[in-house]
Design a protein around this nucleic acid. Structure first.
Lengths: 224, 224
DNA sequence: ACAATGCTTCGGCTACCATCGAAGCATGAA
DNA sequence: TTCATGCTTCGATGGTAGCCGAAGCATTGT
C-alpha cells in the first residue's frame, strides 16, 4: 500500500525534500532524512517500486524526483490533513542537537537559527514572502547594507533567484535560501561569527560566543 | 503522521470499508479488517486521534464514519496512486434483501427510502441538520402542510424531540426519526401509500404502486 | 593501471507496534 | 436484580521493518 511508504518518517522526509520539484541525489536525500546512505538506498528502492519517485542516472550520481504532480498533490493533501488536527509532525529528525540548531543547507544557514532569522526578517518587514518567493524590501536593503555590509548588487546571479524560501528539515518551517541566504552565511563566516564544523562531511555550523551574541542582537526573538 | 495511520493494513481495510460514506460499528469494522475487537478498538482510537474518523454513540453500539469529504478525498487519491502500480483493493458489495429498501425503525421509516427522504428534505432546505438535531424550517413547515397535511402543532410531544436523526441500520446514514418521522410514517399509512408487512415480527414496509410514485414525486432523487 | 566517489547488497541487531487473551465497564434486556 | 452484548483497557508476545557496519559494484578521475 502506498500510504505505508509515505508513513515511514525517513521516507516522508525524503518526499518532503522533493516537494519543491527539484531532483536530489540519493546521498542528499539521505542527509535530509538523517540516515545513512545504505538505509536511504533501501528506502528509495521501495519508493521507486511504489511509483512515488523516479530515478535519473547521471554519472555516478542518481537523481530522484517525484514521479509526477499527482504524487505531489496527494502528499500535499496528506499534509493538509495532518495540519488541521494539529497533528503536525514532530519528527525524530536529526539526533544531533547541534545539527538541529545550526547547519549548512547547500550553502546557506538552516536549523533553528536559520528559521529564526527568516522569521525576524519577515516580522520587521525587511523581506516580503509570497509562497516560496522572497523579496527584499527597501528597508531590508538598508538593513543589510548597514549591519552586514551586503549591497544588493552583490546578489545578482544569473542562475538563481535572489531570495527563496527553503523548507527546514528539522523545524519544518521556512528558512532563507537563494543568493541572499548564501551571501549572509558567507558574511557570517567572514565576520567570524560562525564556521562550518571542521569534521569532514559534517553539516554542523558552530557559532562563536560573540557571533551568537551579534546574531541574537540582529535576529533574536528574545528566547535565546 | 497521517500516512502512517493509513499505512497499516488493518486500518486501511477499515477506512476502505467506510469509503462509501456509511457508518459502521466497531465490531463490523473488526470483522472487515479480519482482526479481534480489542485490536480494532486500539486502531479506531488512533484513527480518531488522527482526525480521520468520528464516532457516534448509539445504544451500546459505536458507529464510526469518516470525518469529512477531505479525508475521503485523500484516501481516494492514495487509492489512485496505488491503482496505477497494480495494487487495487475491492470492496464487497451489498448483500441484503428488500428489508433494506423500506422498513420500520420503531415507528418511523428507515432503509433506503428513509435515508433518501431525509436527504431530499435537507437538500431543499426544508430541514436543517446539526449533528443529531434536526430543525424544521419555515419552508419545511409549509411543505408539510401543503403536501401531507401535517401541521406543526401535531408534532408537539413532551417526551420526544420534534425531529431527530437516526442512524440507519442498513444504509448507515441518517434518516428522519423523532415525532416528525413518526407522523410522516403514520401519514403514509393513512394515505395508503405504504403499510407494514402483515407477517408477524416483520419490519418490512411495503409501498403500493401509487404510493411509491407519490413518494418519489415528493422525495425522489431521480434514480428511482 | 590505481584510487576515489556514489550507491547498492548483505547480515545481524534492535525497537516498535500490531495482535490476542483476559478482565473491566457500559448499556440494554429479562 | 441478573444476564447478555458491545466495546475498551491491560499485559505479554511475536513478527516485521528500520537501521547501521562491512563489503561489493559501478563510474569517474589521475
Amino acid at each position: 500500500m502506498v500510504a505505508a511508504l509515505v508513513g515511514d518518517p525517513a521516507r516522508a522526509n525524503m518526499l518532503t525534500a522533493l516537494m519543491n520539484g527539484r531532483a536530489l541525489t540519493a546521498s542528499e536525500l539521505a542527509q535530509e532524512a538523517g540516515i545513512t546512505p545504505q538505509t536511504a538506498s533501501s528506502h528509495l528502492a521501495k519508493l521507486e517500486a511504489g511509483g512515488l519517485v523516479e530515478p535519473e542516472k547521471q554519472g555516478r550520481h542518481r537523481y530522484y524526483r517525484l514521479t509526477d504532480d499527482d504524487v505531489a498533490g496527494v502528499l500535499e493533501g496528506l499534509a493538509g490533513l495532518a495540519a488541521r488536527t494539529g497533528h503536525m509532525r514532530v519528527r525524530t529528525g536529526p539526533k544531533d542537537p547541534a545539527l538541529r540548531r545550526a547547519r549548512i543547507c547547500y550553502d546557506h544557514l538552516a536549523g533553528d537559527l536559520g528559521v529564526q532569522m527568516l522569521d525576524s526578517l519577515r516580522e520587521r518587514h525587511l523581506v516580503k514572502q509570497k509562497k516560496q518567493e522572497i523579496e527584499l524590501t527597501a528597508e531590508g536593503e538598508r538593513f543589510l547594507a548597514k549591519n552586514l555590509q551586503i549591497s544588493s548588487d552583490m546578489l545578482s546571479h544569473p542562475r538563481r533567484p535572489v531570495c527563496k524560501a527553503c523548507l527546514d528539515w528539522s523545524e519544518r518551517r521556512h528558512h532563507l535560501a537563494g543568493t541572499l541566504g548564501a551571501a549572509m552565511m558567507q558574511r557570517f563566516a567572514e565576520l567570524k561569527w560562525a564556521a562550518r564544523d571542521p569534521t569532514p562531511g559534517s553539516r554542523v555550523v558552530n557559532f562563536t560566543r560573540t557571533g551568537e551574541k551579534q546574531f541574537a542582537a540582529l535576529f533574536g526573538n528574545g528566547k535565546d
